[in-house]
């Protein structure tokens, strides 16, 4: 495998994807960076001028900006909390011998394959609608007042929907990791007198640590960019109550036609994502050395 010919060939084979990704990464990002220093409105495209840091300043002083950062963090944090804890619980349950394991797995994994707009619409109309949703039906059944989820708790509602979509992913990965736990280790721990709780804390949890890290980091990539769920349900409202950074940039760009402002927001999003990416790279990179 290590002859000179194969090395040259290998470089040639890698070239297309490397070049494509290089262009794909550099060109739009450079444009975004350039636009972020420009006063550029799509409604007035002939009047483009350099504004320095004005766009950043504008974003920075906008109350919606901090609200959207906060919302982004709440969505990421909330969904991670639900999916990781719920995922561990369900994975532990599915790791037991049960009847119909295959079907149970299929039922639980299903939400992951539902496209975001459909997931959002199902929850918005079928489940959480204050008039006709299932939750309202349940409330009425018990004699309570139905809750208008998207008006009263918009951010929580979105966290709930997104968590429903990602819970299967976390469960499946954690279950896979759980099943790779050496049976003899469990038996050794039993011999050593560890009860279920002790085994979970000292044996299972450390074993799951890597899978949990992977779940957290991969979900974070996707959760930072939650978009369709917001678009379909609350449209970012009421006010900016459920607008995350991604949605704010979309609003600025395609509803406000403010290219410069949106680009500045985009650069901020890149910086945020890079902080996350830094940790993900280290975790995944370690795995490569194996």
């Amino acid at each position: 495998m290590a002859t000179q010919n194969t090395k040259t060939l290998a470089r040639l084979m890698m070239a297309p994807s490397v070049l494509l990704l290089l262009v794909w990464m550099i060109v739009p990002l450079a444009m975004t960076l350039w636009f972020s220093f420009q006063n550029y409105n799509l409604l007035d495209p002939s009047n483009v001028s350099f504004t320095g840091l004005f766009n950043y300043q504008f974003f920075y002083t906008d109350r919606a900006f901090f609200q959207s950062i906060w919302n982004t963090l709440v969505i990421v944090g909330g969904v991670l909390l639900i999916t990781v804890i719920g995922g561990i619980a369900i994975a532990l349950l599915l790791d037991q011998p049960i009847f119909g394991q295959g079907i149970v797995r299929i039922l639980i994994i299903s939400p992951f394959f539902v496209m975001p707009p459909v997931a959002a619409l199902i929850w918005k109309n079928m489940i959480m609608h204050p008039g006709y949703g299932v939750l309202a039906d349940i409330n009425k059944f018990f004699g309570f007042q139905p809750v208008d989820w998207f008006a009263r708790y918009p951010l929580f509602s979105i966290v709930l929907i997104v968590a429903w979509q990602w819970l299967p992913f976390a469960t499946l990965i954690l279950l896979t990791a759980l099943q790779s736990l050496d049976g003899e280790q469990k038996e050794a721990a039993e011999m050593d007198g560890a009860n279920f709780f002790n085994r979970f804390i000292y044996l299972v949890l450390p074993h799951l640590a890597r899978a949990i890290t992977v779940v957290i980091l991969i979900q974070t990539i996707f959760l930072l960019g939650v978009y369709a769920e917001i678009l379909v349900t609350t449209n970012g409202g009421p006010g900016y109550a459920s607008t995350n950074l991604a949605f704010l940039i979309y609003r600025t760009a395609l509803l406000g036609y403010d290219v410069g402002g949106a680009s500045a927001g985009g650069i901020i999003a890149v910086v945020l994502a890079n902080i996350v990416a830094f940790f993900l790279m280290r975790a995944v990179g370690k795995n490569l050395d194996r």
Binding site: V18, Y227, I267, A269, A273, M281
Partner: peptide, 20 residues
């Protein structure tokens, strides 16, 4: 690693240039 890192570029960050 670098290839994976391109995946982490938030889509919204390049929405404007791509759209244009």
């Amino acid at each position: 690693m670098w290839m994976l890192s391109t995946k982490m570029m938030p889509a919204v960050a390049v929405l404007v240039p791509i759209y244009l």
